[in-house]
Amino acid sequence: MHMDPNVSPIIAIEHLSFTFPDNTVALKDVTVDIAPNQVFVVFGPSRSGKSTLLRVLNRLSDLSEGAQRQGRVFFNGRDIFSPAVDVTELRRRLSMVFAIPTPLPGSIFDNLAYGLRMAGIRDAQTIERRITRALEQAALWDEVKDRLQSSAFALSGGQKQRLCLARSLAMEPDVILLDNPTSGLDPLSTATVEDSLIELKSRYTIIMVPHSVQQAARVADRAAFLMGGELIEAGTGRQMFANPKDRRTEDYVVGRFG
């Protein structure tokens, strides 16, 4: 389950288990390394723990009161659950985009500036520069540059999702966590988002729960197949989707179930 030994992983997950307060086991003893500057895809049938895995990585899982977690997660070699870690800072480094676009009430500009302002950045020029760059990276700049002050809710579904992506990018994180970012998007918007992801991986590490196996195959450098909270198999995208080792992965990839 380990990757190229020459590259040190940006994230190392070791024996991670996660159980919700109602005793639903979301993750069972997951161990996997994630290399920097790649698109790492986590796929599998629904309720297999994909979203939970993403939410553990930036500790949004802390919000589930009474949940149980075992195992460790290292980000750049540091245990993210150590008491010395500043959760807020961690979430700035590992920024998350959700399945449902979540623009906040306010203008497009406010949405993008929000995270920066909350991080204590006051300089108007810095904010403007980072917003412009984030919008360009998310392939949204041309569509919204003339109406940054209009409500974020007036955007189309695909634009909203790219806005959320830009909001994360404006934070200049190390890792972008994408939980099914193209659900509910039309094929054209999906293609735009996928294209921007491939552009982005030179600067960021992208961990993504895909919308479909096809999407996973299109974007993955490496992929991990989860089922019932267990990591069945991880490997390069090419190997996982063309030549999976495990029977269950193969069945899922070719569509025998799922």
Partner: peptide
């Protein structure tokens, strides 16, 4: 208030 607003805000590093 939708839970998504909270998640979205926390996920980009707001306290």
């Amino acid at each position: 208030v939708p839970k998504e607003y909270r998640d979205a805000s926390l996920a980009i590093g707001a306290t």
